[in-house]
Design a binder for these strands. Structure first.
Length: 268
DNA sequence: ACACTGACCTGCGAGC
DNA sequence: TGCTCGCAGGTCAGTG
């Protein structure tokens, strides 16, 4: 499941592979993948060049000369750069044929991903609800305090809330709380000033380590270069049976509709 | 305003 | 073996 580190890896990989490539034409095999007018989508992308590659939270942003393509991988979305003669299966939903003969293919077994285009100058009203990036200095202990004020939701739900900070998903939320020694079900109203600092610092530490390793792979993620993340081997609690710190049995509890893994001994 | 639930999808594994 | 059922999870609409 792509979270911030995986999306960052995809952005960097695609920049390496298709920077300045020109789109010849676009085929949409599953129309619901595209938000807005599909004909417009295809027509406006024809002849455009992939110029800059950015990420905002879990969104991929491809800047062209006249339009911007925004893509969200949700759970299982992946991009591949392949030759037209390479076979593809029924999970390929969008094909960008490039003028150099290659194809950028979007594959998504569960069809949850979405993409859309905006004008180049659009200020991305789409992103208005996203909180600060974890590495932005606006994400700090004072911000955590102001965000949680008046709220009683579980810490896990707060970390998953993209308006809190953009890019954290289920796996990293569990790992961050494990590193902080806080149970996922703990109310955000009942943490200390030190906990606020820990949440900020551990979020940055864990995400940057994961980016350095090229993202996590638990089930399906591989980047278009075929790079497979290694962070899964470093998970302390998520999908684990035994705590890597103390050896206790890991508990699983549904919080906010998500499976949440924690160590009852290390996390209070 | 906040918090929770179901829908969107498909594949996979457990249980009968 | 073959079926059904629950689960996986990011986001958003709907509800209390």
């Amino acid at each position: 499941m792509p979270e911030l580190p995986e999306v960052e890896t995809v952005v960097r990989t695609l920049e390496h592979l298709i920077k300045d490539a020109c789109i010849d034409h676009v085929q949409i095999l599953y129309p619901k993948m595209i938000e807005g007018d599909r004909d417009d989508f295809c027509r406006k992308l024809e002849g455009e060049h992939f110029r800059r590659f950015e990420r905002r939270g879990k969104y991929l942003i491809f800047r062209m000369d006249h339009v911007t393509l925004v893509s969200h991988l949700r759970m299982e979305g992946k991009y591949y750069v392949q030759q037209p003669e390479e076979p593809y299966d029924r999970h390929i939903h969008v094909i960008f044929s490039l003028k150099d003969g290659r194809q950028l293919r979007y594959r998504d077994t569960r069809k949850f991903g979405r993409m859309f285009i905006t004008d180049i100058d659009e200020d991305f009203s789409h992103f208005n609800d996203l909180g600060p990036e974890p590495f932005d200095e606006a994400f700090n202990a004072a911000y955590v305090r102001s965000f949680r004020k008046g709220k009683k939701q579980p810490l896990k739900s707060m970390l998953l809330d993209q308006s809190f900070t953009a890019g954290i998903g289920n796996i990293y939320a569990d790992e961050i709380l494990s590193a902080c020694g806080l149970r996922p079900g703990r109310s955000c109203a009942r943490i200390t000033k030190k906990d606020e600092e820990n949440i900020v610092n551990e979020t940055r530490r864990i995400l940057s380590e994961a980016i350095a390793m090229g993202g996590t792979t638990i089930r399906t993620y591989t980047s278009s270069l075929g790079v497979t993340g290694m962070f899964q081997n470093d998970c302390c609690v998520h999908s684990q049976k035994i705590c890597r710190r103390c050896g206790s049995e890991i508990h699983v509890k549904r919080i906010g509709g998500r499976s949440s893994y924690y160590c009852p001994h290390c996390q209070k």
